[in-house]
Nucleic acid binder design. Structure first.
Lengths: 139, 139
DNA sequence: GTCCCTGCAAACGGTTTGCACCCGG
DNA sequence: CCGGGTGCAAACCGTTTGCAGGGAC
């Protein structure tokens, strides 16, 4: 993991390592607040501002991906590879979706004069468990 | 336009008509604040709460689409048809993109047990005019 | 009369900022 | 020293909510 820090010229401070480690190993798509609370539990001196700072630094360094999925809070994803996101409209759960076959085009590319660096696909619907629950109820 | 109101059972109040009309005819992807300011200019009594109210009612009625493109403010789109969005990372401009060929799949659908009602595609990059400006500068 | 809609102001939640401090190079 | 990184609190901004009217049916 530290290799990323070295490559990006970021100083690997304890806080940054902690943030990176949490996002990488914990509930995928953690919000900044979740990260803050986790960090703060282990080191009560860690502040919100620092967590936001670290998250943004890591995003800028390309070690994390930031996605706005529900219009509420930004979510951070240690999975840098090409994939999409599914958001359950009932419970708010977020799940990774394998890149779809035949995505139509591959970024980066030029599209009608625009430079398209990348793209994200967000699917909205009802997750498996919510679906099961609702079918049980409708029986 | 009023036909949509009738169909959806929404009362066509002056405020709602004004909101609908603004979003339909003005800078695509207006933010709630832009809408509020425009409405308020013509009718200084119109309040923020009402604008938000109208926007949400119209979204729920399916007459507008709400998209979170930049993590700042929600944007509202009178274009209901299938299309995607491009966000310029330089100037923040939002542009409509025709649905891509070979989207890979068509919603609604069932995907690994999930019900996928719809999906949105957001492209990030540099718009044509920003690109031109930067090329000029680098010459 | 009832219910939906409106207007106002205050609250809220996520995020950012200003500033002082500290630590490593 | 100098500069980046941190901690704290206050500000900020988009949005939501509570509540008191008011109009349409």
């Amino acid at each position: 993991m530290a290799v990323g820090f070295r490559r990006s010229g970021l100083r690997a401070t304890p806080q940054r390592l902690a943030v990176m480690e949490y996002v990488a190993h914990h509930p995928v798509h953690a919000t900044a607040d979740q990260v803050y609370r986790a960090i703060n539990r282990r080191d009560p001196r860690a502040s919100r501002a620092t967590v936001y700072n670290c998250l943004h630094a890591l995003v800028k360094a390309g070690l994390l991906r930031q996605v706005m999925l529900d219009g509420q809070a930004a979510r951070f994803d240690a999975n840098i590879g090409q994939h999409h996101h599914f958001v359950c409209g009932r419970c708010g759960a977020v799940e990774d979706i394998a890149p779809m076959k035949a995505p139509g085009f591959v970024a980066p590319a030029i599209l009608d004069g625009r430079y398209v660096a990348d793209y994200e696909v967000i699917l909205h619907g009802v997750c498996e468990s919510c679906r099961a629950r609702e079918q049980r109820r409708n029986k």
